[in-house]
Amino acid sequence: MRVGLFITCVNDTLYPRTGRAVVRLLERLGCEVDFPLAQTCCGQMHWNTGYGPRIEPMVRRFADTFAGYDAVVTPSGSCGAMIRDNHPRAAARAQDPTLAADVAAVVPKVYDLTEFIVDVLGVTDVGAYFPHKVAYHPTCHSQRLMKLGDRPTALLREVRGLELLGLPGEQECCGFGGTFAVKNPDVSTAMGADKVRHAAGTGAEVLCAADNSCLMHIGGLMDRQRTGMRVLHLAEILASTEKEPA
């Protein structure tokens, strides 16, 4: 199984730890992981902010870059959803049949990391060790667009030493929302503050999610509020072992 890793521009630039964790995890599970360097960005920020007509080159780049793989795995629910839901729309809008065909060919091979592990590899126990109290935040696009369901928690439950704590109001948005976070900072912060309050109330040491962009927002608030909690991408927990703890 040749897996192309779509790391996403945010992870590439700000969260290389997550990327390294994904590589370590997938290789541990027997995958041949490749990171095609031609990749850049899925175009989500442009699309969601009203610059959809401009992302055609990014859509083209993604389809070309990942054409040769058995599976394309990404550790971001929102980027995965962007590709799955909106790359076909962007291609249709470009009125380029070749592009539409290329996109249609690559989209079914795109998986969120947890989807890939549970559905394709058929594994829920990834051999991880993480002796901490953890709460899981199902980010909006992970749950509503990628429809990850209980895959992330199924994986977390098998992690040795991990105590999974329920997060009240877990389905509620954290308030990140891409450029929403800066266009409507007060509402965004109010939503995030409630998320932080819920998370802190669980007594967990770590809040994890399948999307670092939401965690950037939540973690930024936690840091300012000095909650003592930290945020961690799910992949880093799943990659964690006694030898190489997260």
Partner: peptide, 27 residues
């Protein structure tokens, strides 16, 4: 405009090395 973020939230620390650079160096 950046204040819209930093008024309430810390900025994530920029890592010394991007994932891309790590991959090229390592792999």
């Amino acid at each position: 405009p950046g204040a819209a973020w930093t008024d309430s939230r810390s900025i994530p620390a920029v890592p010394a090395e991007s994932f891309r650079d790590w991959w090229v160096r390592e792999r």
